[in-house]
């Protein structure tokens, strides 16, 4: 009888906890779906899209030329124009070894010796790359990642709290303290070398997936000469696939938050406009953009730790995974 009572109590406790968790989960889902509407705008999305596409054509479309055939000279020019484009915007540099490997892979894909990879395959590859890089992060890398993801900052900024409460990740803002984020990153680093790494890949894939698809869709519409057919926008599914250089462009765009918009001159105009707008909004002088890059570590528009994400070893690892997948 006593054991029966204990059992009932145990069930009662378990049921209470279960009920509480179900109720809380339902509440959390309801709260998560609560949508905010930007109060100051109800822009027509087609108009926004057209403007964005024009800015992409003015940026990447004008400054990067992709080779359509497999001739080594033209491919080398493509790789160099891509490198120049990302370097002047983000400071990210490709080593000679990486450029040679990339040009060789691009040639093999364009002459038909290797096949193109799909956007879904790139998603899988990037989750492998993330785990690989995570496992090798030093404590210093993690600290730098935290500082960098909090946005543009200089010592002479009047208000040091601006931007500092949140980390800017692709498509989301994470409100978290440095202490908590660093602790989580260290825990993820440990897990990345354990049996949990497979589960982590799944989580990373779900995070990357949507952004890559959006990016592939946007570029195939905005730049049909360079990205036409990589994504089937009508049916919202993989299209003809990506060459290694296209895959690297999507990867850079995802990691840096650079939508590949605007020529040099117009990018500088945007940054100057941003400086004036923030100064006006806050009534304090925001630092001028001169001497700062738009993207990459401490980027004026979007700051991202590209120096940590894409060291030479990680670039090579990424290209090797692409080569494995694209082998016929």
């Amino acid at each position: 009888m006593i054991s029966m009572n204990r059992s009932q109590k145990a069930r009662y406790i378990a049921a209470s906890i279960l009920f509480a968790c179900i109720a809380l989960a339902a509440f959390a889902v309801w709260r998560s779906s609560a949508s905010l509407r930007d109060r100051n705008q109800l822009n027509d999305s087609a108009d926004n899209k057209a403007k964005l596409h024009a800015r992409i054509r003015d940026g990447f479309g004008r400054e990067v030329q992709f080779s359509l055939d497999g001739s080594p000279g033209r491919i080398r020019d493509s790789v160099n124009s891509f490198e120049r484009f990302i370097f002047k915007r983000s400071g990210l540099k490709l080593s000679a070894r990486v450029k040679t490997k990339l040009a060789d892979m691009e040639a093999r894909t364009l002459n038909g010796s290797s096949r193109r990879i799909s956007v879904s395959e790139l998603d899988e590859i990037l989750s492998e790359v993330a785990i690989h890089r995570l496992a090798a992060l030093t404590d210093e890398d993690i600290k730098h990642t935290d500082e960098t993801l909090r946005g543009f900052q200089t010592d002479d900024m009047p208000d040091q709290t601006w931007n500092r409460s949140a980390l800017k990740l692709p498509g989301r803002l994470l409100i978290v303290s440095s202490e908590k984020f660093i602790e989580r990153m260290k825990s993820l680093r440990e897990k990345s070398t354990s049996a949990d790494s497979e589960a982590m890949k799944g989580v990373i894939r779900s995070f990357v997936d949507n952004s890559l698809r959006e990016s592939a869709s946007r570029l195939s519409e905005a730049l049909p000469e360079q990205f036409g057919g990589v994504w089937d926008s009508t049916n919202n599914r993989d299209g003809a696939g990506l060459t290694p250089l296209q895959a690297l462009t999507l990867t850079y765009s995802f990691a840096s938050g650079d939508l590949l918009c605007d020529s040099d001159e117009n990018l500088h105009k945007y940054m100057s406009g941003l400086q004036r707008a923030i100064t006006k909004l806050r009534g304090q002088p925001h630092p001028m953009p001169e001497g700062h890059l738009a993207f990459g570590p401490n980027g004026y528009i979007t700051s991202a730790p590209l120096d940590v994400v894409f060291d030479d070893d990680t670039f090579s690892f990424l290209l090797d995974r692409i080569r494995e997948r694209s082998g016929r």
Binding site: S16, A25, S32, A277
Partner: peptide, 26 residues
Amino acid sequence: LTISIFAACVSTQDCRVTGLAPGQTY
């Protein structure tokens, strides 16, 4: 126990902003 689970489970939430124009700063 229920209160502590409540506090642990719903101490944070996600808020989604919609209707944004890509490439614009908010």
